[in-house]
Structure formats: structure tokens, C-alpha cells
């Protein structure tokens, strides 16, 4: 077709200028958010009491290091389940309070939110474990292994509970499980030097690796089950 005729056709079919185009296109633009911004936003949503819950653990570790308490490790270990319980129930808050559908309608996907909160609190807890291991005055590696054991056990148990029991009952069951692990730590504190002797360290290390893998798998399943509504 000749260019001149094409131009005439364009003029023939030319409609009046659209009035709402800019506003419509602006409304359609997806807001791009980088990971750093998302983590900051999610960190702000974590309540202060969750952060404050790690303070008693820190203070206790500091007290142990300052005044040289005997048998401090099992006591520190007994506190770890509560740290997990507070962090995990915060990550799974939408499931505990039955608000998954509400979260699914929010700006970020529920999967990203749960992963971001797990990442933030998991990293904070890991730093705390390292600090406590240093403060407890023993070998950092050994201290971290002992502290991670109840931590991972509680994490695995709580994840399994959260996936199977919804609502406040789930929260209650998590608390009961955390108390059980904590109680078991205190119950066996007299035998701690026997069980956690250096020669058994590889066994505990292997157990921690297995527990870590199980926690990752269970965490993945839990997030998938949350996001079933979205798929």
C-alpha cells in the first residue's frame, strides 16, 4: 500500500485522544521491589517482643560467662526451644491466626513473606547461637552443636505441628512441644558430660545435619501447604 494512502487511512480512523490512558497505565504498572527492600519491610512487621524474647537468653549467657556457672550448657540448651517457638510461630503467624487468604491478597506472595521472615529470624537466631557459644566460655564449635540440637529438634517438631494443627490449638501444641524439649534438656543435665563427651561429637554432628535437612524439607512442605490456595 502506498504511504500516502496509509497516512490518509490513519487519519480517517484517528479517534479522539484517550483521556484516561495515563492513569490506567500507571495503575497497571507492577511495583518492582528488590529483595533488600522486602526484607526491610518484613523485618519491620516482626513485633518487638519477638526480638526481645532473645534478650533473656543473651543475658543468661552473659551471666554464665561473667560468674562462671557450672553446668550452664544444659540450662542454655533448655532455653533454646522457646527461642524457636517464638520465631517459628511469628513466621507462621498467618497460619496460626487463619489469615492465609488475607496474606495471599497482599502485595508480596505468602511464600516470599514466610521465607523472608524465616530468613531474618533464622539468621538472627544463628547469630545469637554463635554469641552464646562464645559467651558460654567453651569451644565455639562444640557449644554451637549443643545449642543447635534442641533448636533444630524444636524447629522440626513445631513445623510438623503447624502444618497439621491450625489455629490457636497449633500454637498451644507448639508451646507444649517446646516445653517438652526444654524439660528433656533439664532432665538429662546430670548426664550431659557423659552424653556430650568429645568422642560422641561426630554422632551429634551427624544428628544435627540430619535434623537440619529434615527441618529444611519440613519447612518446604509447610510453605507449599500454605501456598496451596495460591496455585
Amino acid at each position: 500500500m502506498k504511504r500516502a494512502i496509509k497516512q490518509r487511512l490513519e487519519q480517517y480512523f484517528e479517534p479522539p485522544k484517550p483521556s484516561g490512558k495515563r492513569a490506567f497505565l500507571r495503575g497497571m504498572e507492577p511495583r518492582r521491589v528488590n529483595i533488600r527492600h522486602m526484607l526491610i519491610v518484613q523485618a519491620r512487621y516482626i513485633p518487638k517482643w519477638v526480638w526481645l524474647s532473645s534478650v533473656p537468653l543473651f543475658l543468661f549467657a552473659w551471666y554464665v560467662s561473667r560468674f562462671g556457672q557450672d553446668n550452664a550448657t544444659p540450662r542454655l540448651m533448655a532455653l533454646m526451644p522457646f527461642l524457636v517457638m517464638v520465631s517459628l510461630t511469628e513466621c507462621m503467624r498467618s497460619a496460626v491466626y487463619g489469615m492465609e487468604e488475607m496474606e495471599l491478597a497482599a502485595q508480596f506472595s505468602l511464600r516470599s513473606i514466610v521465607l523472608a521472615r524465616m530468613g531474618i529470624l533464622g539468621l538472627a537466631n544463628l547469630l545469637l547461637v554463635i554469641v552464646i557459644s562464645v559467651l558460654s566460655g567453651q569451644n565455639i564449635f562444640k557449644g554451637a552443636v549443643f545449642l543447635l540440637l534442641p533448636y533444630l529438634m524444636t524447629a522440626l517438631g513445631n513445623l510438623m505441628i503447624v502444618r497439621r494443627v491450625s489455629g490457636k490449638e497449633g500454637l498451644f501444641a507448639c508451646a507444649v512441644f517446646a516445653f517438652a524439649v526444654s524439660g528433656a534438656d533439664l532432665l538429662f543435665h546430670t548426664k550431659i558430660n557423659v552424653y556430650f563427651a568429645d568422642r560422641y561429637l561426630p554422632v551429634w554432628l551427624l544428628l544435627i545435619l540430619l535434623l537440619g535437612m529434615a527441618v529444611v524439607l519440613e519447612g518446604r512442605n509447610t510453605i507449599q501447604s500454605f501456598c496451596e490456595l495460591q496455585s
Binding site: 480512523f13 484517528e14 479517534p15 479522539p16 484517550p18 483521556s19 484516561g20 490512558k21 490506567f24 497505565l25
Partner: peptide
């Protein structure tokens, strides 16, 4: 956007409805 708007305007001959 403009192409679909042009098409709708061609069909309806009414700018606001076309938009």
C-alpha cells in the same frame, strides 16, 4: 492501548465508551 482504543472507537463511535 491506542490500537485497541482505535478499534473500539471504530466499532462504537463514542470516545468515552471506547476507552
Amino acid at each position: 492501548y491506542d490500537k485497541i482504543y482505535r478499534y473500539c472507537f471504530f466499532k462504537l463511535h463514542h470516545a468515552q465508551t471506547a476507552e
